Amino acid sequence: MLLAYVGCRTTKERNARGEGITTFEIKDGKWEEINLTKTLENPSYQVLHPNKKFLYSVHGDITKISSYEINGSDLEFKESFDIGGKNPVFIDIDKGEKHLIVAALQGGVLYSIEFQNEKIIEIKDKLEFKTETGLSFAHQCYFDKTKNYIFIPCQGRDRGDSGLYVVKINDGNFEITDYFKARKHSEPRHLVISSDNKHLYLINEWGNYVTFFEFDEENGRLNPRENISTLPNDYTGHSQASAIVLSPDEKVLIGSNRIFNHLVLYDVHADGTLSERDYVKTFGETPRFITFYKNNLYVLNEDSDTIIEYEYKDKSLIKKQTIESPSPVCLNFLEV
């Protein structure tokens, strides 16, 4: 059985229509909603435990995270935990499966939170991103392939610097090993790294471009190589770049553009550099989140209440179907 968990926005401030985490069952490619778990507001990003028994979510715009137990097709709320930092936006689990790692955007903090299954115990360590100009806003906490390092793209938002931190993690404790100061007002948002752990791609929300880095995993250092736009040369309107993923064969890098409402596709060359390949409609507004499951790409259009499924084939995307879901902003798959 294949299940899909969809996180969403729920508040009027977010112009949202969601009510909680929706569970879909997928049979022969068809999606059927089977459960709605009411949650605290804005369960906007989530991660599954490797044991497939628990799911953890952040709650955007407040200061809490939550845990849920998976019982077959049922998702049961267990507890919430106040981290203190406002607007947690990303959550993951460390290599030892002992700590939840959380980035709080307005809090400007990276957290390491000790946990055991559904029981969230205490904050083990936290790292506040202060620069000479003020607080920087942590928008993601993304592991390298060894799970020895965490990448944290930070936004300045006219109060701090835009940049990308590399943080070494050891038993839940943090140590900064490198920092890349990005262009002012570029607003780094999300990133992805190649399976060989050598090529890292950072998408910049306001700058609307991707920065390619080489990554030295031995020393936790970055080597910036190039910037490439997420927009076509003849597009002169506004846009806000959002999410970024690599195709399963890693031959194509894909980014999403909100407002412009198109995906950008790049060819990935052997040395990791990029060249523009194509632009594909998202068939909806505000593609905040994108993810692959096997050879299908899923685009979540937050303001159109849709999930668009594409087949990835021959370095191209072919639209397959539209799934209705209110204010969707995160998607996880689970085989049970």
Rank of each mutant, 00 (worst) to 15 (best):
M1Y: 04
G7H: 03
R14G: 02
N15D: 11
I21D: 05
T22Q: 06
K30V: 14
Y45A: 09
V47P: 03
N51A: 13
K52E: 13
T63Q: 12
S67H: 07
G72C: 11
F77L: 13
E79N: 13
E79G: 11
D82W: 01
F90Y: 15
D94W: 05
D94E: 03
D94Q: 07
K98M: 06
I101Q: 04
Q106P: 00
Q106D: 09
Q106N: 09
E114K: 13
E128I: 14
A138I: 06
K145R: 15
Y149D: 03
P153I: 07
R157I: 07
G160M: 07
V167D: 01
I169V: 13
E175W: 00
D178A: 12
F180A: 02
H185R: 14
P188I: 01
R189T: 04
S194Q: 06
L202N: 13
W206E: 10
G207V: 09
N208W: 01
Y209D: 15
Y209T: 05
F213A: 03
G220Q: 07
N233L: 14
Y235F: 15
I244Y: 02
S247K: 05
D249W: 11
G255P: 00
R258W: 00
V268T: 06
V268H: 02
R277G: 02
F292C: 07
N296K: 15
E302M: 04
D303A: 11
K315D: 11
L317N: 05
L317H: 06
I318S: 05
P328F: 08
V329P: 04
V329N: 11
F333R: 02
L334G: 11
